[in-house]
Amino acid sequence: MRVLLVEDDPMIGSVVQSALRDASYAADWVCDGESALSTLQTLHYEMVLLDLNLPRTDGMSVLRAIRAARNDVPVLVLSAREATEDRVAGLDEGADDYLVKPFAMSELLARMRALVRRRDGGGNGGALRLGNGIVELDPVTHEAKSGDAQAVRLTAREFSLLQALLVRPGAILSRAELEHRVYGWNEEVESNAIEFLIHALRKKLGSEVIKNVRGVGWMVAKAR
């Protein structure tokens, strides 16, 4: 899943970006409000983590601009502003959640998973399922299972790729779309990286889990 982190503190930004990547998110990081808005105009993100005390357009103005553009991307505010009126203002302006600094990364990741479940209408404890239990992906443990087979642990990038396909069952995702969801800025992408990941997933979960549509991309089937 591709996430945009908007944070002007270099230490916080570096730590959060590193933790997000370790948790299998493709995380891009910008340090001011104007860069956030220009980035959102050119790239698609599944979530925005937004500080409020930003240079060159403050975070609240960024939030208003996102919603004014009818962009429904989930926005999780990360702010040192802990007063009740600040939290209420952020939520009223369109934030989906509000987390006060300092925070534990475990809580941030849990809140992100909750937003993904809410967006996708999930009420199954965080697991994403394909078909009649054919494939199950657990975003907490990064384990996947196919049918009645034992769950297997996925690498960070295997998890990201399978998650991208599972949240859009029946949709064909091209190589470029999958690369966008698996890799962040400045991460080197080998020409056959996506094929390598898909091969590894098929080896772990079965050859029929991910289908290739020749010349177009890859997909998983819709629920039956």
Rank of each mutant, 00 (worst) to 15 (best):
E143W: 06
K145D: 06
D32W: 13
W185N: 13
G170A: 01
A114S: 13
F103V: 04
S146E: 11
D22I: 08
V209E: 01
L99I: 09
L43F: 04
G13R: 01
S207L: 07
G206F: 05
V152S: 12
L108G: 14
L197Y: 15
A110K: 03
V116K: 09
M47K: 10
W29R: 02
R153T: 00
C31I: 13
E195N: 15
E34P: 10
P55R: 13
G90M: 15
A171E: 13
D72N: 14
E34T: 09
S61N: 05
A27N: 05
T39K: 08
A156N: 10
K203G: 02
D97S: 02
L43E: 03
A27L: 06
G59Q: 03
F103H: 02
A151C: 03
N212K: 10
D9R: 12
R81N: 09
L49D: 05
L63T: 11
D148K: 04
R168S: 13
Q17P: 00
Q17W: 00
A110V: 00
S191A: 02
G133Q: 07
A171H: 14
V88S: 00
V167Q: 01
D28Y: 01
L63M: 09
S191K: 10
I194R: 07
N212P: 04
G122A: 13
R113V: 08
E85C: 12
V6F: 09
S61D: 12
D92G: 01
V88T: 03
L20R: 10
P139K: 00
E93S: 06
W185F: 06
V30M: 08
A26P: 13
V15L: 05
A23D: 11
L5P: 13
E179A: 05
D86F: 04
A110F: 03
D28R: 03
A65V: 05
V135L: 15
G125P: 03
R70V: 10
L54I: 13
R67A: 14
P74T: 11
A23R: 05
E85P: 04
A83N: 12
V30K: 05
L154D: 07
V15D: 07
D96G: 12
L130R: 01
L91E: 15
H199Y: 15
D92Y: 01
V77L: 12
E190V: 01
V213W: 11
D9N: 15
L166G: 01
A127Q: 13
M1S: 14
N186P: 04
V140M: 12
E143H: 15
A193Y: 13
D72V: 12
E34D: 12
R118P: 09
R214N: 12
K204W: 12
Q41M: 02
R224I: 11
A114L: 11
A36E: 06
L40F: 05
A151E: 06
F103P: 04
D148A: 06
L130T: 03
L154Y: 03
Q17N: 06
L173T: 13
R70I: 04
M219I: 00
M105G: 03
K222C: 09
S24M: 05
V100Y: 00
N71W: 14
L128T: 08
S38T: 12
V3S: 03
L108C: 08
V6R: 09
S61T: 08
D72S: 15
M219R: 07
G147R: 02
S106L: 02
W29K: 03
